[in-house]
Design a protein around this nucleic acid. Sequence first.
DNA 1: GTAGTCAGGTGATTTAAGTCACGCTTGCCT
DNA 2: AGGCAAGCGTGACTTAAATCACCTGACTAC
Lengths: 240, 240
Amino acid sequence: MIQLLDLVETDEKNIFKNSQLNAKNPSQFVLSEALRKLHTLSNRMMSNFEALFTYIHETAGKSLSAQDKQLLMVHFKPKKLRKRQYFLQEGDVCRYIGFITKGSARTFTVDEKGNEHILKLSLENWWLADFESFYKLTPSRFNIEALEELEVLQTTNAEIEDVLKQIPAFLEMSSVINQNYTIANQKRIEAAMTYTAEERYGDLVRNYPQFLKRFPQNMIASYLGLSRETLSRLRKNALK
Amino acid sequence: MIQLLDLVETDEKNIFKNSQLNAKNPSQFVLSEALRKLHTLSNRMMSNFEALFTYIHETAGKSLSAQDKQLLMVHFKPKKLRKRQYFLQEGDVCRYIGFITKGSARTFTVDEKGNEHILKLSLENWWLADFESFYKLTPSRFNIEALEELEVLQTTNAEIEDVLKQIPAFLEMSSVINQNYTIANQKRIEAAMTYTAEERYGDLVRNYPQFLKRFPQNMIASYLGLSRETLSRLRKNALK
DNA sequence: GTAGTCAGGTGATTTAAGTCACGCTTGCCT
DNA sequence: AGGCAAGCGTGACTTAAATCACCTGACTAC
């Protein structure tokens, strides 16, 4: 039981996982103490996990068994980042993939001139990772930074293989997401190559209206591949 | 056996599949005739299929059993298109996905002004489809046209589910391809948004030198999102 | 043959968007 | 309260690339 107490004290976030594994042989005193913390934690975590469960269910079109859910709770760990904290830094290998339960983030590069280019803006119910780095375990060319207080459920490259193998709904979800990404990326390439700044902004307003409420204009401009001045001007014209 | 003969005469491309299914109860005369054609065909087709087998093996890192190969030969059918023929037309649902064994193709849209924009150039050992339309069975916004005499091995949306389920190496390949597409698309978005015409052309020269030999400059220009004049000029500058 | 089409090059001009510079608000920090 | 950085707007100027126009050479069809 020292083991359990240690875990409670040193790595609070792991308590849920480890107490599940060790709960069969507890001493009375330690149990009551651990259970109190466990209760608080599990409530907090459950609400985060519910979002993930719902998301998987809806995306995969398959329901999750109690066992599936337990497995997800073992493999995914909640993590909080303050505003401006980095989820991933350029040059590091992206070892974690996160499911956003609260907050927002941006994925960006910095070019030789020091200009930042936002490649992705992410909100709740989106996955957060540099997939190239995550899949291939190569150093990332991107930075991922929290734009607001950010809460994710994250797992590692090593563990996700288990999850994919053991939870059919998760595998299905993964395949659906890949399809959707491919489609969305294809559209974005088309847009970047063939449309004017104005048309691209119009698309954003139509397809991602929530972006306008959550992200400042300079971020939107960078995401659209525009200078903030150009965006400001075409917003003025669009009002007419 | 009339059935078999009919198939030989009316749909030569299906002979291999159907003779496999019907070969258990042949009459002597018809068999010898059919076998002659079958032999010719199977030789021709095998060489195409070898490219597919090799590709799956190398991409998935798993080998294919004899059964796997047979199943692929049942589900994939060779198809030839002449130069300028369409593999897919805008407005149609993309029911087929093709593996290119010979030739090249372009995927493009036509905007309101009548300008064509090439989104993808494809060569041997690439898959050919509008994935959005193929996965969702919605009308495609793209045209896919053969640029040279084109040979593909193609299957349908309905059949590919079987292939994915029954051949583990194919499923693995599919997942690897999806990852690679996602990565390649991410890079292309980054390039389109942040790099100049010159840098994008430089990237192409480095990453896809074979494109320069196989595709005319106006196609390359369109693929890079440039006018042919701009490409011509920056090629002149690059020579210095 | 000759006409016609197509890929490609190049000059002159236009235009969309970037860059630089400055000002104005708003919220935050101590 | 004062200082200060962030977010946004806007005028003046520059620049990258598109567009328009015309030319050449190669190939194809008749």
